[in-house]
Design a protein around this nucleic acid. Structure first.
Length: 270
DNA sequence: CGCACCCCCTGCCGGC
DNA sequence: TGCCGGCAGGGGGTGC
Protein backbone atom coordinates (compact mmCIF):
# COMPACT_ATOMS: atom_id res chain seq x y z
CA UNK A 1 0.00 0.00 0.00
CA UNK A 2 2.08 2.85 1.17
CA UNK A 3 4.48 4.72 -1.01
CA UNK A 4 5.68 8.24 -0.35
CA UNK A 5 2.32 10.01 -0.87
CA UNK A 6 0.48 7.62 1.43
CA UNK A 7 3.13 7.84 4.13
CA UNK A 8 3.15 11.62 3.83
CA UNK A 9 -0.63 11.65 4.14
CA UNK A 10 -0.44 9.58 7.30
CA UNK A 11 2.23 11.91 8.66
CA UNK A 12 0.14 15.01 8.00
CA UNK A 13 -3.04 13.64 9.48
CA UNK A 14 -1.30 12.15 12.51
CA UNK A 15 1.01 15.05 13.38
CA UNK A 16 -1.53 17.53 14.81
CA UNK A 17 -2.96 14.80 17.02
CA UNK A 18 0.31 13.66 18.55
CA UNK A 19 2.71 16.61 18.69
CA UNK A 20 3.09 17.85 22.24
CA UNK A 21 1.14 14.93 23.66
CA UNK A 22 2.38 12.21 25.95
CA UNK A 23 2.37 8.43 25.77
CA UNK A 24 0.22 7.07 28.58
CA UNK A 25 0.16 3.37 27.67
CA UNK A 26 1.80 1.00 25.20
CA UNK A 27 0.70 -2.47 24.22
CA UNK A 28 2.27 -4.81 21.68
CA UNK A 29 -0.01 -7.71 20.85
CA UNK A 30 2.13 -9.15 18.06
CA UNK A 31 5.88 -8.69 18.13
CA UNK A 32 6.63 -10.73 14.99
CA UNK A 33 6.80 -7.93 12.45
CA UNK A 34 9.38 -7.72 9.67
CA UNK A 35 11.88 -7.37 12.45
CA UNK A 36 10.68 -8.40 15.91
CA UNK A 37 9.57 -5.49 18.08
CA UNK A 38 12.47 -4.92 20.49
CA UNK A 39 12.04 -6.15 24.10
CA UNK A 40 12.28 -2.68 25.68
CA UNK A 41 9.94 -1.03 23.15
CA UNK A 42 7.08 -0.29 25.57
CA UNK A 43 9.36 1.13 28.26
CA UNK A 44 11.13 3.38 25.74
CA UNK A 45 7.83 5.03 24.79
CA UNK A 46 5.93 5.17 28.05
CA UNK A 47 5.86 8.68 29.53
CA UNK A 48 7.54 10.30 26.54
CA UNK A 49 6.04 13.23 24.64
CA UNK A 50 6.11 13.63 20.86
CA UNK A 51 8.05 16.59 19.58
CA UNK A 52 7.51 16.17 15.88
CA UNK A 53 6.55 13.71 13.17
CA UNK A 54 8.87 13.48 10.19
CA UNK A 55 9.26 11.31 7.16
CA UNK A 56 12.16 10.05 5.14
CA UNK A 57 11.12 8.15 2.06
CA UNK A 58 8.63 5.56 3.29
CA UNK A 59 9.78 5.78 6.91
CA UNK A 60 7.92 7.76 9.56
CA UNK A 61 9.97 9.28 12.38
CA UNK A 62 8.22 10.19 15.62
CA UNK A 63 10.64 12.43 17.45
CA UNK A 64 10.45 11.98 21.23
CA UNK A 65 11.38 14.40 24.01
CA UNK A 66 14.39 12.37 25.13
CA UNK A 67 16.43 12.47 21.91
CA UNK A 68 15.08 9.08 20.90
CA UNK A 69 12.93 8.47 17.83
CA UNK A 70 10.16 6.02 17.07
CA UNK A 71 10.84 4.70 13.58
CA UNK A 72 7.96 3.12 11.66
CA UNK A 73 7.62 1.50 8.25
CA UNK A 74 4.30 0.25 6.91
CA UNK A 75 5.57 -2.41 4.51
CA UNK A 76 3.01 -3.56 1.95
CA UNK A 77 -0.11 -3.70 4.05
CA UNK A 78 0.51 -1.62 7.16
CA UNK A 79 -1.51 1.35 8.35
CA UNK A 80 -1.49 3.71 11.31
CA UNK A 81 -4.85 4.79 12.67
CA UNK A 82 -6.01 7.05 15.43
CA UNK A 83 -8.77 5.57 17.53
CA UNK A 84 -10.70 6.32 20.64
CA UNK A 85 -9.44 4.25 23.55
CA UNK A 86 -12.67 2.30 23.77
CA UNK A 87 -12.62 1.25 20.11
CA UNK A 88 -12.91 -2.44 19.36
CA UNK A 89 -9.91 -4.58 18.53
CA UNK A 90 -9.59 -5.38 14.83
CA UNK A 91 -7.82 -8.30 13.21
CA UNK A 92 -4.10 -7.60 12.69
CA UNK A 93 -3.95 -4.77 15.20
CA UNK A 94 -0.42 -5.28 16.49
CA UNK A 95 0.81 -2.18 18.33
CA UNK A 96 -1.15 0.30 20.45
CA UNK A 97 0.28 3.62 21.63
CA UNK A 98 -2.12 5.56 23.82
CA UNK A 99 -1.65 9.33 24.00
CA UNK A 100 -2.91 11.59 26.79
CA UNK A 101 -5.15 8.76 27.97
CA UNK A 102 -7.58 9.60 25.18
CA UNK A 103 -6.63 8.55 21.68
CA UNK A 104 -4.65 5.52 20.56
CA UNK A 105 -2.28 5.19 17.62
CA UNK A 106 -2.82 1.70 16.23
CA UNK A 107 -0.48 -0.14 13.90
CA UNK A 108 -2.47 -2.61 11.83
CA UNK A 109 -0.60 -4.80 9.36
CA UNK A 110 -2.03 -8.05 7.95
CA UNK A 111 1.13 -9.16 6.21
CA UNK A 112 3.45 -7.98 8.99
CA UNK A 113 6.06 -6.60 6.60
CA UNK A 114 6.07 -3.36 8.56
CA UNK A 115 8.30 -2.47 11.49
CA UNK A 116 8.54 -0.23 14.54
CA UNK A 117 11.61 0.50 16.61
CA UNK A 118 12.76 3.10 19.13
CA UNK A 119 16.33 4.36 19.11
CA UNK A 120 18.67 7.21 18.35
CA UNK A 121 17.99 8.43 14.84
CA UNK A 122 21.70 8.26 14.02
CA UNK A 123 21.71 4.55 14.79
CA UNK A 124 19.01 3.56 12.31
CA UNK A 125 21.01 1.72 9.68
CA UNK A 126 18.08 1.67 7.24
CA UNK A 127 18.04 5.46 7.13
CA UNK A 128 21.71 5.65 6.31
CA UNK A 129 21.10 3.62 3.16
CA UNK A 130 18.33 5.70 1.70
CA UNK A 131 18.68 8.49 -0.81
CA UNK A 132 17.17 11.96 -0.97
CA UNK A 133 13.44 12.52 -0.75
CA UNK A 134 11.99 13.37 -4.16
CA UNK A 135 9.56 15.88 -2.63
CA UNK A 136 12.22 17.96 -0.93
CA UNK A 137 14.97 17.57 -3.50
CA UNK A 138 15.10 18.89 -6.99
CA UNK A 139 17.66 17.63 -9.45
CA UNK A 140 18.29 19.59 -12.58
CA UNK A 141 19.19 17.86 -15.81
CA UNK A 142 22.92 18.08 -15.07
CA UNK A 143 22.48 16.48 -11.64
CA UNK A 144 20.44 13.75 -13.21
CA UNK A 145 22.96 13.07 -15.93
CA UNK A 146 25.76 12.77 -13.40
CA UNK A 147 23.77 10.46 -11.14
CA UNK A 148 22.40 8.34 -13.90
CA UNK A 149 25.39 7.97 -16.17
CA UNK A 150 26.84 4.95 -14.39
CA UNK A 151 23.54 3.24 -13.67
CA UNK A 152 23.22 0.40 -16.11
CA UNK A 153 19.77 -0.58 -15.06
CA UNK A 154 16.25 -0.02 -16.32
CA UNK A 155 15.04 3.43 -15.31
CA UNK A 156 12.08 1.95 -13.43
CA UNK A 157 14.37 -0.17 -11.27
CA UNK A 158 16.47 2.91 -10.55
CA UNK A 159 13.43 4.97 -9.56
CA UNK A 160 12.42 2.24 -7.14
CA UNK A 161 15.91 1.87 -5.70
CA UNK A 162 15.55 3.52 -2.29
CA UNK A 163 19.27 4.30 -2.18
CA UNK A 164 18.84 6.49 -5.24
CA UNK A 165 15.58 8.20 -4.30
CA UNK A 166 13.60 7.39 -1.19
CA UNK A 167 9.87 6.87 -1.39
CA UNK A 168 8.95 5.78 -4.90
CA UNK A 169 7.26 2.40 -5.13
CA UNK A 170 5.73 0.34 -7.88
CA UNK A 171 2.56 2.34 -8.52
CA UNK A 172 4.16 5.76 -8.76
CA UNK A 173 7.19 4.52 -10.71
CA UNK A 174 4.79 3.26 -13.37
CA UNK A 175 2.71 6.41 -13.32
CA UNK A 176 5.59 8.89 -13.53
CA UNK A 177 7.19 7.00 -16.41
CA UNK A 178 3.90 7.22 -18.25
CA UNK A 179 3.73 10.95 -17.55
CA UNK A 180 7.27 11.32 -18.86
CA UNK A 181 6.65 9.18 -21.94
CA UNK A 182 9.53 6.83 -21.13
CA UNK A 183 9.42 3.04 -21.28
CA UNK A 184 10.18 1.36 -17.97
CA UNK A 185 12.92 -0.83 -19.44
CA UNK A 186 14.95 1.97 -20.93
CA UNK A 187 18.51 1.94 -19.59
CA UNK A 188 18.89 4.79 -17.11
CA UNK A 189 22.33 5.66 -18.42
CA UNK A 190 21.04 6.13 -21.93
CA UNK A 191 18.27 8.61 -21.26
CA UNK A 192 18.68 11.94 -22.98
CA UNK A 193 18.83 15.25 -21.22
CA UNK A 194 15.35 16.07 -22.44
CA UNK A 195 13.98 12.78 -21.17
CA UNK A 196 15.55 13.32 -17.76
CA UNK A 197 14.01 16.77 -17.60
CA UNK A 198 10.63 15.33 -18.46
CA UNK A 199 11.10 12.65 -15.82
CA UNK A 200 11.98 15.15 -13.13
CA UNK A 201 8.86 17.14 -13.99
CA UNK A 202 6.66 14.07 -14.10
CA UNK A 203 8.01 12.82 -10.78
CA UNK A 204 7.08 16.02 -9.02
CA UNK A 205 3.75 16.36 -10.75
CA UNK A 206 2.69 12.81 -9.93
CA UNK A 207 3.89 12.83 -6.32
CA UNK A 208 2.55 16.30 -5.49
CA UNK A 209 -0.81 15.52 -7.01
CA UNK A 210 -1.02 12.29 -5.07
CA UNK A 211 -0.13 14.01 -1.80
CA UNK A 212 -2.63 16.76 -2.53
CA UNK A 213 -5.34 14.19 -3.06
CA UNK A 214 -4.47 12.41 0.15
CA UNK A 215 -2.58 9.37 -1.05
CA UNK A 216 -3.69 6.76 -3.54
CA UNK A 217 -3.04 3.08 -3.50
CA UNK A 218 -5.67 0.70 -4.66
CA UNK A 219 -8.94 0.53 -2.88
CA UNK A 220 -8.03 0.13 0.75
CA UNK A 221 -5.80 3.06 1.63
CA UNK A 222 -7.00 5.11 4.57
CA UNK A 223 -5.26 8.02 6.17
CA UNK A 224 -4.80 8.16 9.93
CA UNK A 225 -8.36 9.38 10.42
CA UNK A 226 -9.78 6.63 8.26
CA UNK A 227 -10.46 8.75 5.17
CA UNK A 228 -9.80 7.01 1.85
CA UNK A 229 -7.42 8.35 -0.78
CA UNK A 230 -8.81 9.27 -4.17
CA UNK A 231 -5.81 9.12 -6.43
CA UNK A 232 -6.63 5.62 -7.65
CA UNK A 233 -9.15 7.01 -10.11
CA UNK A 234 -6.24 8.74 -11.83
CA UNK A 235 -4.07 5.69 -12.39
CA UNK A 236 -3.21 5.93 -16.07
CA UNK A 237 -1.38 2.62 -16.42
CA UNK A 238 -0.96 0.85 -13.09
CA UNK A 239 -3.03 -2.34 -12.93
CA UNK A 240 -4.66 -1.50 -16.27
CA UNK A 241 -3.29 -4.23 -18.52
CA UNK A 242 -5.30 -4.38 -21.74
CA UNK A 243 -7.31 -1.26 -20.85
CA UNK A 244 -7.11 1.75 -23.19
CA UNK A 245 -4.37 4.30 -22.63
CA UNK A 246 -6.05 7.50 -21.42
CA UNK A 247 -4.07 9.49 -23.98
CA UNK A 248 -4.14 7.37 -27.16
CA UNK A 249 -6.44 4.43 -26.35
CA UNK A 250 -3.81 1.81 -27.20
CA UNK A 251 -4.04 -1.21 -24.87
CA UNK A 252 -1.78 -0.91 -21.84
CA UNK A 253 0.91 -3.59 -21.64
CA UNK A 254 2.15 -5.49 -18.64
CA UNK A 255 5.64 -6.92 -18.29
CA UNK A 256 7.60 -8.14 -15.28
CA UNK A 257 10.68 -6.21 -14.27
CA UNK A 258 12.75 -7.25 -11.24
CA UNK A 259 9.83 -9.40 -10.24
CA UNK A 260 7.40 -6.48 -10.17
CA UNK A 261 4.43 -5.89 -12.45
CA UNK A 262 5.21 -3.10 -14.85
CA UNK A 263 2.66 -1.25 -16.98
CA UNK A 264 3.14 1.09 -19.90
CA UNK A 265 1.57 2.39 -23.06
CA UNK A 266 3.52 1.02 -26.05
CA UNK A 267 2.51 4.05 -28.07
CA UNK A 268 2.97 6.98 -25.69
CA UNK A 269 6.12 5.66 -24.02
CA UNK A 270 9.30 5.17 -26.01
C1' DC B 1 27.64 -3.77 -9.95
C1' DG B 2 23.15 -5.38 -11.41
C1' DC B 3 19.81 -8.90 -11.47
C1' DA B 4 17.06 -12.91 -11.18
C1' DC B 5 15.40 -15.29 -7.74
C1' DC B 6 14.31 -16.42 -3.11
C1' DC B 7 12.18 -15.29 1.43
C1' DC B 8 9.12 -13.01 4.94
C1' DC B 9 3.10 -13.02 5.53
C1' DT B 10 -1.99 -12.79 4.81
C1' DG B 11 -5.87 -11.80 1.84
C1' DC B 12 -8.22 -11.77 -2.30
C1' DC B 13 -9.57 -12.95 -6.85
C1' DG B 14 -10.17 -15.67 -10.92
C1' DG B 15 -10.22 -20.12 -12.94
C1' DC B 16 -11.58 -24.63 -12.82
C1' DT C 1 -19.71 -23.88 -4.05
C1' DG C 2 -14.98 -24.74 -2.89
C1' DC C 3 -10.30 -25.27 -3.51
C1' DC C 4 -5.85 -23.74 -5.43
C1' DG C 5 -2.54 -20.99 -7.66
C1' DG C 6 -1.11 -16.53 -8.53
C1' DC C 7 -0.57 -12.10 -7.26
C1' DA C 8 -0.35 -7.77 -4.20
C1' DG C 9 1.61 -1.22 -2.40
C1' DG C 10 8.14 -3.42 0.41
C1' DG C 11 12.60 -4.78 1.52
C1' DG C 12 16.42 -7.78 2.37
C1' DG C 13 19.38 -11.60 1.26
C1' DT C 14 21.87 -14.84 -1.85
C1' DG C 15 24.52 -16.41 -5.60
C1' DC C 16 25.60 -15.68 -10.47
Amino acid sequence: MPELPEVETVRRTLAPHVIGRRVTAVEVRERRLRQPVQPGFEACLLGRAFRDVGRRGKYLLFELDDEQTLLAHLGMSGSLHLRGREAALAPHDHVFIEIDASEVIVLNDPRRFGMMRVGAVTEFAELRQIGPDPLSTRRNADDWRREVRRRRMPIKSLLMDQRFLAGIGNIYANEMLFEAGIRPRRMASRLSRLELERLEGAMHAVLYKAVELGGSSISDFRDARGQPGYFQIHHAVYDREGAPCPRCAAPIRRVVLSGRSTFYCPNCQR
